[in-house]
């Protein structure tokens, strides 16, 4: 299950209650206290670890120094070590493929479904909502189910492919290094499609009918209407879906844990899994932190671009 990110801004700008009055109960400080409760917690359990992460990425941290507050600084050694490993190229490429393919497929399928369920027929809204069941299930269970579906010997996927004549041999989805990554992508697309669909449905619903009617009067056919009205009017929404898709895809961990554990031989390893692996399986915590720092930079850049762009729209 992934988490939506929002910059909803439906607040009126005038008539702000400036908390007035002397006591806390009447709030000069009430709003600030309420915000600081949350911010304080987040600073303690997100922001400080974030900073600590950066510090550790310049230190030598392993099982022996983990408890010590006075660890030797090693400069960029962790980064050098991480970037010079043989697996690094594969893992970076895997991450790019994983994100690119997942986002592209989720978006295409999600958009298609959103367009289909935009038509009015009995139960359309309810049926559309059912898709979210895939999103709400624990990632590890989704991974478990898919690893059974994709099982090499008795998996139903292989049976379906053979029965329809698409392949003649069984595909070893999870144990073939050149295919394992695509297995995770399939499961990840399954998880991500509903969210994409719902998000895009909201955008589609916001396009007024009369715009389409006007275009129809002007003689625009179905495809032409899609290209000249739907797509341009959905631009902001599509941008949001793509940014969120990248962010969520970079958060995906459970499916790797359940399906391939990054293997075989890093064939399906990605940065976010590798970082965990370095820290918790190889106990090269400094290196794990270095990978983590690099990826967090990527995630925050994507998120900041997205938030700023939506801010801009609201202001305009």
């Amino acid at each position: 299950m992934t988490v939506p990110l929002s910059t909803t801004d439906s607040m009126p700008t005038v008539g702000t209650i400036r908390a007035s009055g002397p006591s806390f109960r009447d709030g000069r400080g009430l709003d600030r206290v309420l915000v600081w409760l949350t911010l304080g917690f987040l600073v303690a359990f997100s922001a400080l670890p974030l900073v600590y992460n950066v510090v550790m990425s310049f230190q030598s941290v392993d099982l022996f120094t983990i408890a010590s507050f006075d660890r030797p600084f090693v400069g960029l050694d962790n980064y050098k070590a991480v970037l010079s490993q043989r697996a690094t190229g594969t893992i970076v490429r895997n991450t790019a493929v994983f994100v690119g393919l997942s986002v592209a497929l989720q978006l295409t399928i999600g958009f298609g479904l959103a367009l289909y369920f935009q038509q009015r027929f009995p139960g359309s809204t309810w049926l559309r909502g059912l898709f979210l069941a895939g999103w709400i299930m624990p990632g590890l269970v989704v991974g478990g189910v898919w690893s059974w579906i994709l099982a090499g010997d008795f998996g139903v996927m292989n049976w379906a492919l053979q029965a329809t004549g698409i392949t003649s041999d069984k595909i070893f989805w999870l144990s073939d290094p050149s295919i394992a990554l695509y297995s995770v992508i399939i499961a990840n697309v399954w998880v991500g499609v509903p969210f994409n669909m719902i998000l895009l449905s909201v955008g589609l619903a916001a396009i007024p009918d009369d715009v389409y009617e006007a275009a129809e009067m002007d003689g625009a056919g179905r495809i032409w209407r899609f290209l000249t009205i739907t797509l341009p009017l959905m631009r902001a929404q599509l941008g949001a879906v793509i940014s969120l898709g990248i962010i969520f895809t970079l958060q995906q961990f459970d499916l790797f844990a359940a399906l391939t554990q990054g293997g075989p031989s890093n064939g399906s390893n990605v940065m976010q899994y590798w970082s965990w692996e370095l820290s918790f399986q190889h106990y090269r915590i400094g290196q794990g932190a270095a990978v983590s720092v690099l990826m967090i930079l990527v995630v925050i850049c994507v998120a900041a671009i997205y938030v700023r762009s939506t801010r801009h729209e609201h202001a305009a």
Binding site: G21, D26, G27
Partner: peptide, 8 residues
């Protein structure tokens, strides 16, 4: 009541 809250 210049700085009193509404309820006062």
């Amino acid at each position: 009541v210049s700085s009193a809250p509404p309820r006062a």
